[in-house]
Write a protein that binds this DNA or RNA. Structure first.
Length: 99
DNA sequence: GGAATGACATTTA
DNA sequence: CTAAATGCCATTC
């Protein structure tokens, strides 16, 4: 089981309309590899089962996306998330907490 | 094995 | 509050 696999597994647990920060993911994995998490996303071999577009920065910004940040925003808004100027509106209300 | 890279975070000015 | 500098972990070249 690689780091990436674990990240994907967590992401697959995120329900529609919810989001998480890179920090939360790393924290859930008991590590501080926020960077590595981002790398895993970039290497996302399975964008279908892995909703990597629901991962955002800890400051509420969108962050990056393989298909472009625009596309990411579009997807999130389609799931009910409000985004303004590449920033999540009330993103604390949409944050998903892992068990 | 070592150096470079990145979808980040935190601290300092 | 905004901007810049520094630190970080895992992966890849």
């Amino acid at each position: 089981m690689t780091f990436n696999q674990r990240c994907y597994e967590l992401l697959s647990q995120i329900p529609k309309g919810k989001i998480v920060t890179y920090k939360q993911i790393a924290n859930t994995l008991n590590t501080k590899a926020y960077r590595a998490v981002g790398n895993a996303m970039a290497n996302n071999p399975n964008p279908i089962t892995v909703p990597c577009h629901r991962v955002i920065k800890s400051n509420g910004l969108i962050g990056g996306y393989v298909f472009g940040t625009k596309k990411k925003i579009n997807l999130l808004e389609d799931e009910g998330i409000i985004i303004k100027k590449d920033e999540i509106v009330d993103f604390k209300k949409h944050i998903h907490l892992f068990k």
